[in-house]
Write a protein that binds this DNA or RNA. Structure first.
Lengths: 268, 268
DNA sequence: GGGTGGCTCCCACTGAGCGGAATGATCATA
DNA sequence: TATGATCATTCCGCTCAGTGGGAGCCACCC
């Protein structure tokens, strides 16, 4: 018998995306069975989809028969956020060279900060985070800045959900965070003291575009004293200003998505 | 009447990819109608697909109602070719700083060279090419190297197809190119004298991985004398050697796709 | 006001997609 | 060599997700 327990309401498009998403948390390559499990799609269906995606180069087949994300997908994705990435890249690198520390630029994506570009100083501290990686907004300095300068309803919505603890130091107390965000908005910077990973602290400043927060520029170091972090503020602000200047002429949407956030609206 | 002139054999997956491909040759954002035309999909179908892709963040809606590639897609694609990109990036930058010229690293993708990473010197010559852009193999220095060190049947297959002319200088003569490739394989480098764009010349060397050509490292300058180009050879080769060393321990497939090329096989 | 062009929604038809099961390939263990 | 386990591939008849022309709508312009 065929066509038995099909889950209705599942579109092909959503399955294709599930398959691609399966690779996000994957170590390099995946077998067909692994993709099937991770994407929650029956094997034969997965097989068909994966085969077609591979024929387009969106996925690639390794010599051992496993699958990995193909360069074709990377190529199709290059246009996304290019303006910000290209504007930020040289400045991020310069700042890393000058300070000899790791410099990151992130944007907000829903409830996460998304790492867009990074550069390292000589000291190989904190080389953990990879371009494209996510972190909950309340943990990193960058995330706090991204949230602090957002509209009130976004802050409120964020704090309403449970706050994940990443280290012993992660702030998961709503009141404390709320005060921290207010302070960050007031002072124009935020910090994170081992709240993401033990041994790594950071300080971040906002990058604005047309009066709205567009990104966050941060320095990650092994330092743990606030005074040590604050000495980077002038350099961070100067770099942020340069990036703002470079992107000033761009239209609002050219930087990053007009936000998937549903506005307060009516309902509820 | 419904379901009239549907083109059969067209899978949803292929339509989704067509929609994404529509943005490749697009200037920033596209309207629904434009996507429909470029992807060859009826408007109402396009509308449905595009809406779903946008709901996943794979596409984004601009404030004016147009669509652009979303960062979510960029994020999903980050894993592709990461090893090579990350290994090459600092070296490409160093080389650009030392030589004060534009340095590019490319891989072969079918009949094109695909620009993976680039860095510029102070002289802002040749800042045209964007990361992710393609060029036919016979035009650029990088492309010639990528072809010269490939298997015989790939070279033959490439030269069998018509060769596009990009400038007055582009070599489109089969015999000439064949000799050039042999020479490149022999000497370990290739050059391109204004064959891609008037006023820009380049010299390229191969980057090997486990005995097979993996990428091509090139310098683009406004120079037009062969002697001026050749003086970059030692630096290029040294950088290529460093990249080879950094990637030596990686498995074959970790670098770039086990090749979409169909081997000679039987038929014909 | 009326025309134009682009976006959204609707709805009845139908073949693309489905997925359980059978088959084949590969490897490890007895 | 047999046995068993794991994973990839192919098969095939059922059915609902996808389809796309058309109608309605909105924004803009002459």
């Amino acid at each position: 018998m065929a066509g038995g327990s099909r889950e209705p309401g599942r579109t092909v498009t959503s399955k294709v995306i599930s398959v691609l998403e399966a690779f996000e948390s994957a170590p390099g390559s995946l077998s067909l069975a692994e993709i099937s499990v991770r994407s929650g799609t029956p094997i034969s269906t997965t097989h068909r989809l994966v085969a077609e995606l591979a024929s387009f180069g969106v996925l690639e087949r390794t010599s051992s028969g496993r699958y990995q994300v193909g360069i074709r997908l990377w190529e199709l994705a290059q246009k996304a956020g290019r303006q910000l990435r290209e504007a930020a890249r040289p400045r991020v690198q310069d700042l890393a060279a000058i300070t000899n520390q790791s410099v990151l630029i992130s944007v907000r994506q829903g409830r996460d900060s998304l790492l867009i570009e990074r550069a390292h100083g000589d000291r190989q501290a904190a080389r953990m985070s990879k371009v494209g990686s996510r972190l909950p907004l309340h943990a990193s300095a960058a995330g706090k800045v991204l949230l602090a300068f957002e509209a009130e309803w976004i802050k409120r919505a964020y704090l309403a959900e449970p706050l994940q603890r990443l280290t012993r130091e992660t702030h998961v107390d709503r009141e404390l965070l709320e005060r921290e965000l207010t302070l960050a908005a007031q002072d124009g910077y935020a910090q994170s003291l081992e709240e993401v990973r033990a041994g790594a602290s950071a300080i971040a400043v906002p990058v604005f575009h047309l009066g709205h927060i567009a990104a966050s520029l941060s320095i990650v170091t092994e330092a743990f004293r606030v005074s040590q972090l604050k000495k980077y503020l002038p350099a961070l602000r100067a770099t942020a200003a340069v990036i703002e200047e470079t992107t000033r002429h761009l239209p609002r949407d050219a930087l990053l998505g007009a936000g998937n956030d549903s506005p307060p609206s009516a309902a509820e």
